[in-house]
Design a protein around this nucleic acid. Structure first.
Length: 210
DNA sequence: TCATTAACACGGG
DNA sequence: CCCGTGTTAATGA
C-alpha cells in the first residue's frame, strides 16, 4: 500500500521523508458517508488523501449544514494542520464523499517534520494556500452568485470528483449541502433540465455536454 | 419577489 | 407500500 504514497506524493517529498511516512503512517480505508472528523473533535492525526474525495462541511448554531469544498487525492486537511498548531478543536466536519484511501500521520510528527524537511514545509504552505483559494471561491459563490449558479457549480464539482457526469444525490441531500429547501432545488433542477443542461432521473442527475 | 413550509399526488422499485 | 419527485398554496422576509 505504501507505493500509493509514492505515486501521489513521491514528487513532493524527499526519500527520507517518504521513509518516515511509511514508518509512522497508518493506512486507512473509509467508505462513502463515513465521518472522518466531527465538529468539536480533537484532532489526533492528519490525513494524506491517496484516493477518493472528502466533503468538508460547516455547521451553524441550529445544526444546518453548509458545504464548503471537496478534498481530492494529494490534498490534506488544512483544518487539521491548523488544529495541530493551535491544539484546538475542529471547526468543520469531514465526510467521505466516495470510498477513499488515506494515510494517517500522528500529529506529533508534524512539528518535527516542519523543521526537518523543506519539502514538508512547502507542502504545508501549499496546502494552506490551496484551501484558502478554495474557500475564497466558495465565499464568492455564496455571496455573489445566485443559488442556481451555485447549484450548477456544486453539480460540476461533484461530477469532477467522481469522474462521471452522473451525480447520485437526492434533491434533499443537495438542499442540505447548500443549506436551502428541497422545493427550491427541485425547481432549479427542473429549470436546468428545461435548459438542456442536465437530465433528471430518480436519485440521479446527468450532466449533459456543455 | 423569492425562499420556506406544509401538503398532496404521482410513480418506480 | 415507501420514498423521491414535482407542484401548489400560504406565509414571511
Amino acid at each position: 500500500m505504501f507505493k500509493e504514497i509514492k505515486i501521489n506524493y513521491g514528487s513532493l517529498f524527499e526519500d527520507a521523508l517518504l521513509k518516515e511516512i511509511e514508518e509512522v503512517g497508518v493506512y486507512k480505508e473509509v467508505r462513502k458517508d463515513d465521518k472522518l472528523i466531527e465538529i468539536g473533535a480533537y484532532v489526533k492525526s492528519m490525513p494524506l488523501l491517496i484516493s477518493g474525495a472528502i466533503k468538508i462541511l460547516r455547521e451553524d448554531g441550529d445544526g444546518n449544514e453548509l458545504f464548503l469544498y471537496f478534498l481530492e487525492k494529494g490534498d490534506t486537511c488544512a483544518m487539521t494542520l491548523s488544529c495541530c498548531i493551535g491544539q484546538g478543536q475542529s471547526k468543520i466536519r469531514a465526510v467521505a464523499e466516495v470510498d477513499s484511501c488515506l494515510y494517517m500521520i500522528p500529529v506529533q510528527k508534524m512539528e518535527e517534520w516542519t523543521s526537518k524537511y523543506k519539502s514538508w514545509r512547502n507542502f504545508v504552505f501549499a496546502s494552506y494556500h490551496n484551501r484558502l483559494l478554495e474557500l475564497l471561491d466558495t465565499i464568492d459563490n455564496i455571496a455573489f452568485l445566485n443559488l442556481d449558479k451555485r447549484l450548477l457549480k456544486y453539480l460540476q464539482d461533484k461530477s469532477k470528483i467522481t469522474n462521471s457526469n452522473i451525480v447520485s444525490s437526492t434533491h434533499q441531500e443537495i438542499a442540505y449541502d447548500l443549506n436551502t429547501s428541497r422545493v427550491v432545488i427541485s425547481r432549479l433542477l427542473k429549470a436546468l433540465e428545461n435548459k438542456k443542461v442536465i437530465e433528471l432521473q430518480r436519485n440521479k442527475i446527468v450532466l449533459l455536454e456543455s
